[in-house]
């Protein structure tokens, strides 16, 4: 299991157990977490899974994937250096304890 902490825009923290290989988006959706919509199911077509990777973790989550910049451009909230599409971050043992911040809105 890989622990991921989601910090909502209002500060509420939720820590979930994800499975290796699942994405940060899918882990949130399976638990019914508000704040990540994931309309396209992870095909990088919607930008409703936008998150900000906590500064302490951005090295380990790696760079954005091919095409991710273009889709982030459609995100509802501000895009920052730490912005990622959470469907493109796949959980690995190395990411145990990952912290992501959620935007004010996804739609």
């Amino acid at each position: 299991m890989v622990k991921v902490t989601y910090i909502a825009h209002d500060g509420t923290e939720t820590t979930l157990d994800g499975a290796e290989g699942d994405s940060v988006m899918a882990t949130a959706i399976s638990a019914g977490l508000d704040g990540i919509v994931g309309e396209c199911g992870g095909s990088m077509m919607c930008a409703t899974c936008h998150c900000y990777v906590d500064d302490a973790w951005s090295d380990r989550t790696g760079p954005r994937k091919d095409g991710e910049d273009d889709m982030l451009d459609c995100a509802a909230d501000d895009v920052k250096d730490t912005s990622r599409l959470s469907c493109q971050i796949k959980l690995t043992a190395e990411l145990d304890g990952l912290v992501v911040h959620l935007p004010s809105s996804q739609l």
Binding site: G38, E39, C40, G41, S43, M45, C46
Partner: peptide, 18 residues
């Protein structure tokens, strides 16, 4: 029904879905 497969899934997931 999040995760339904009507548009496929993965890298070929429907590019025209929007």
């Amino acid at each position: 029904p999040l995760g339904h497969m009507a548009f496929g899934a993965g890298i070929h997931g429907c590019v025209g879905q929007n």
